[in-house]
Every structure is written in structure tokens, then in C-alpha cells.
């Protein structure tokens, strides 16, 4: 399987990462190398094999759906790159 420049651009947009032209080219080559490498898995017969999602099975962990107040509100908000009082501030969402 080979990944084209267009596919790299699509993946970059899905990943929300802006790539330069240089990076697109380099990534296309490197992603192809990585995908070629993982092609080895086609040698394995996985017919009828159950997928493993986690190594050690743990049953669902349940707790009361009870709310509590987080004490360090300022500590959280202080980490924001931009804030307006108690809100996270972001650039405009829609153009126009």
C-alpha cells in the first residue's frame, strides 16, 4: 500500500497539524516506510482470532454518578493560553 501526497494532506488536516511542503514530502516517504514495515502482519493468519483491546482484562469499574466541586479552579484556568475571567478564550470560530 502506498500513501500519496494528497492522503498525507488529508491525514494532516484530520490530525489538525499544519505541514509545510517539505514536511509533506518527507512524511509521505516516512509513512510509506512505516506502512511497508507493518505489512508484515499480513503473514499472520488472524482468521477467527478475537481482537485484544487491553492486555489485562478488568471488568467495568462503576461508581456513583455524584458531582463534587474541584477546589483548584484557578490552578486550572491559570494554565490556559488565553482566558477571560472564568472562560477559556479562543479565536473566532466562523470566518466572516
Amino acid at each position: 500500500m502506498s500513501i500519496s501526497l494528497d492522503e498525507v494532506r488529508k491525514v494532516a488536516l484530520l490530525s489538525r497539524i499544519a505541514l509545510t511542503d517539505d514536511e509533506e514530502e518527507r512524511f509521505a516517504a516516512q509513512l510509506n516506510d512505516i506502512l511497508d514495515y507493518v505489512e508484515q502482519l499480513n503473514e499472520l493468519d488472524v482468521e477467527g482470532v478475537e481482537p485484544t483491546t487491553r492486555a489485562i482484562d478488568v471488568s467495568n469499574v462503576m461508581r456513583q454518578d455524584a458531582h463534587s466541586t474541584y477546589e483548584n479552579r484557578e490552578g486550572l484556568l491559570n494554565n490556559a493560553p488565553d482566558r477571560d475571567e472564568d472562560f477559556f478564550k479562543v479565536p473566532k470560530i466562523l470566518n466572516g
Binding site: E7, V11, S15, I17, F27, L31, L35
Partner: peptide
């Protein structure tokens, strides 16, 4: 990090 995010995004797309 970008490379791995890209591989993962591709594999899950």
C-alpha cells in the same frame, strides 16, 4: 510526535 499522530490517524481513518 507528528509522525506518530499521522500514522495513528491514518490507521484509524
Amino acid at each position: 510526535v507528528k509522525r506518530r499522530i499521522a500514522v495513528g490517524t491514518y490507521a484509524l481513518s
